[in-house]
Nucleic acid binder design. Structure first.
Length: 272
DNA sequence: ACCCCTGTTCGGCG
DNA sequence: CCGCCGAACAGGGG
C-alpha cells in the first residue's frame, strides 16, 4: 500500500494522540514485525510517556515520545495506523496498541512485511539519520540523481527508481507514473539513457513526489484523473493520453505497466 | 484452488 | 568484491 504521500497520510492518523500519556502498551513480543527490536524496553519506556511529535521520511515514520524515547515504523505492504476508542480490543493483526485515556493508537499489519523499531536516547536514532535526501528537498538535485543512476548503470531504470537509498519513498505505482510521464520504457538500462531523458525523469520524479505528498498527504482525495495510477491495475487499462491499451510485464522484479506508444521498448532479458 | 499483490532482505551467481 | 536477480517472508482478495 503505502508510498510517499500515503505514508504521510498514515503518519498523521496518530496526531489526535499527541500531548497525551500512554497508559498501557499492548503487543506480542514474538511477532515478526518486531524482529530485531527490544520489545521489553519498548514497553517499559513507553508506558507512562507522552507522544510528542512525529515525522515521515520516504516510507519511514518516526514518533518521538517524552523520556528520550523514539519509535520507528515502516508499514511494509499492508501496514496501517488508526485511532480507536479507549477500551479497544485488538483483532488478529493489530500488533501494537497504545492505550491513552481518551483513545487508543493502533498499528495493523496483516503480512508483517513492515517493521517496528525502538530507540532510547537524547538524539534521534542512528537508523533514522541515513543521509538519503528527501525527493522534495533541495538535496535531491540533478547531480545526486545522475550519480545514483550511474552507480546502478547496469540495472533497468524501473529497478533503480525503486531503490530507497536514492529514491526515498518511491514505490511501484510512483515509479510507473514517473516513467510514463518521462516517456521512458521501464526496461531501459539506466546507464543508457540520454541526458535529455535523465533531465526529464529527474523533473518528473520531483513532480510526482511533490504532488503525491500534497494531494495524498493532507486528506484522502484522489490524484488527478489523468494519472496512470487509475489505469494500471486493470487488465483493460489504457493510456490516459490517447487511450492506447497499456502493457504489463515483470520488470525489475515487479509488476510494471506502461504505454507502448509513449514508452517504446521491448522486454528483453537484460531489461528485466 | 489458484494466482496476484503499492516492500525489503538475503543468498546465489556471473 | 560488486551488482543483479529471484526467492522468501505471510496473509487477504479476486
Amino acid at each position: 500500500m503505502p508510498e510517499l504521500g500515503e505514508v504521510e497520510w498514515e503518519r498523521r492518523k496518530w496526531n489526535p494522540g499527541i500531548g497525551d500519556k500512554i497508559r498501557r502498551v499492548r503487543l506480542h513480543h514474538e511477532k515478526r514485525i518486531f524482529r530485531g527490536t527490544d520489545t521489553h524496553a519498548l514497553v517499559r519506556h513507553l508506558e507512562g510517556s507522552t507522544l510528542l511529535i512525529s515525522e515521515a521520511r520516504g516510507k519511514r515514520m518516526l514518533f518521538r515520545f517524552s523520556k528520550n524515547s523514539w519509535l520507528g515504523i515502516h508499514l511494509g505492504m499492508t501496514g496501517s495506523l488508526r485511532v480507536e476508542g479507549p477500551a479497544f480490543i485488538p483483532e488478529k493483526h493489530d500488533h501494537l496498541v497504545f492505550y491513552q485515556a481518551k483513545r487508543s493508537l493502533v498499528l495493523r499489519d496483516s503480512r508483517q512485511f513492515g517493521r517496528v523499531r525502538f530507540h532510547q536516547g537524547s538524539t534521534a536514532p542512528e537508523w533514522w539519520r541515513d543521509g538519503v535526501p528527501e525527493i522534495v528537498s533541495k538535496d535531491f538535485g540533478f547531480a545526486f540523481f545522475a550519480r545514483f543512476l550511474d552507480r546502478h548503470r547496469g540495472a533497468p531504470i524501473k529497478a533503480v527508481l525503486l531503490r530507497q537509498e536514492g529514491f526515498s519513498g518511491i514505490g511501484n505505482w510512483m515509479a510507473d507514473e514517473i516513467l510514463w510521464r518521462g516517456q521512458v520504457f521501464p526496461g531501459r538500462v539506466a546507464g543508457k539513457l540520454s541526458d535529455a531523458e535523465r533531465k526529464d525523469l529527474w523533473r518528473e520524479t520531483r513532480l510526482v513526489a511533490r504532488q503525491s505528498l500534497k494531494i495524498l498527504g493532507n486528506d484522502d482525495t484522489h490524484l488527478p484523473k489523468n494519472w496512470l495510477i487509475h489505469e494500471r491495475w486493470s487488465s483493460s487499462g489504457v493510456c490516459p493520453k490517447h487511450r492506447t491499451p497499456l502493457r504489463r510485464a515483470t520488470i525489475g522484479g515487479r509488476t510494471t505497466a506502461w504505454c507502448p506508444k509513449c514508452q517504446p521498448g521491448k522486454v528483453t532479458r537484460a531489461s528485466r
